[in-house]
């Protein structure tokens, strides 16, 4: 199922994210996804997130599909050139994967193989353009595909709380012009910034899923504030998490905060995307508290 069909029907689309392990055993991941994420629309599978080498996104997407879930295949441009990316897109379509998320990707220097060659032959915008090209039955080199071309729901990301918001909106517009169907955002902790962003992003007419991270502790939030571009957790939330460490550790405070952000932003977006970062088990409680 393409998640764009749900947006078209006016449904509020909920997706969550799983990160493949550094290894080949994913029974636990699939079981958790079935148990906690079975009730939501779709599950993103990250592509060597943070430039750390892991099991492949495509393989895990296929396993999720076999387990009855709807995967969103994330592709970054960091590790593959245009030949490999197109080839993997065809492989995904052959497996029956219908949803993709196109990203540029973190730089190799930030990950666990800092000496690796960063590829970036394409970027998020030209990757979206490439997918449209494949959908029209022709590859990026202008050569015809054999048989029915693939069709995807094509997503991309945007960072609504970035301090470079003008440049972010400009990039968002280029993604729309290149054929993007829907957007997922970087994690939001400041509803007022998100709402101001949506007032400017509405002109593009594309559905936007609010990005959500369930904060685990004040320390984690301070780390994100210092190291994760576009994410800022305000002081009052830090205080809330620091006030009762046991409550924060149990996830109660984090779920409350995330649910509050969702409730405040819900009238302005068309769905949410939860980056649970190992707290997949908290997703059902979060959705309940957020009233979804």
């Amino acid at each position: 199922m393409k998640i764009t069909e749900l947006f078209d029907r006016g449904e509020f689309v909920v997706s969550a994210e799983v990160g493949p392990p550094k290894g080949i055993h994913i029974d636990g991941l699939i079981e958790e996804a079935k148990k906690y994420l079975g009730g939501i629309t779709a599950v993103n599978v990250t592509d060597n997130q943070s430039s750390v080498m892991r099991l492949g996104s495509l393989a895990v997407c296929r396993q999720l599909l076999d387990a009855g879930l709807t995967p969103i295949y994330q592709l970054t441009c960091r590790d593959r050139n245009r030949i490999a990316l197109q080839s993997d897109l065809l492989s995904a379509a052959m497996f029956g994967i219908e949803n993709i998320l196109c990203l540029t990707g973190d730089h190799t220097s930030l990950g666990d193989h800092p000496g690796a060659k960063p590829v970036f032959d394409l970027d998020s915008v030209s990757l979206l353009h490439t997918v449209c090209q494949l959908e029209s039955g022709v590859d990026l080199g202008g050569n015809p595909l054999v048989g029915e071309p693939p069709k995807f729901a094509k997503g991309a990301v945007v960072s609504p709380c970035s301090d470079s918001i003008d440049a972010q909106l400009a990039k968002m517009e280029r993604k729309v012009l290149a054929g993007c169907d829907y957007f997922q955002t970087q994690a939001v902790f400041e509803p007022e910034k998100f709402i101001a962003f949506m007032e400017r992003a509405r002109q593009f007419g594309k559905p936007v899923q609010l990005g959500i991270i369930i904060p685990k502790s004040a320390g984690m939030c301070r780390y994100m504030n210092n190291n994760v571009a576009g994410v800022h957790v305000p002081d009052d939330m830090l205080d809330e998490l620091a006030a009762d460490k046991e409550r924060a550790k149990a996830g109660i405070t984090g779920v409350e905060i995330a649910a509050r952000v969702i409730r405040e932003c819900r009238p302005y977006c068309q769905g949410i995307h939860i980056m649970a970062l190992g707290w997949e088990s908290k997703v059902p409680a979060l959705l309940k508290q957020a009233g979804i």
């Binding site: 540029t104 973190d106 730089h107 960063p118 970036f120 970027d123 998020s124 915008v125 030209s126 990301v157 945007v158 960072s159 970035s162 301090d163 470079s164 440049a167 972010q168 400009a170 990039k171 280029r174 290149a178 970087q186 571009a229 576009g230």
Partner: peptide, 12 residues
């Protein structure tokens, strides 16, 4: 990243 289509999400 020598990007030619605009900013990535990594600027802080």
């Amino acid at each position: 990243k020598s990007l030619v289509n605009g900013q990535c999400g990594g600027a802080q």
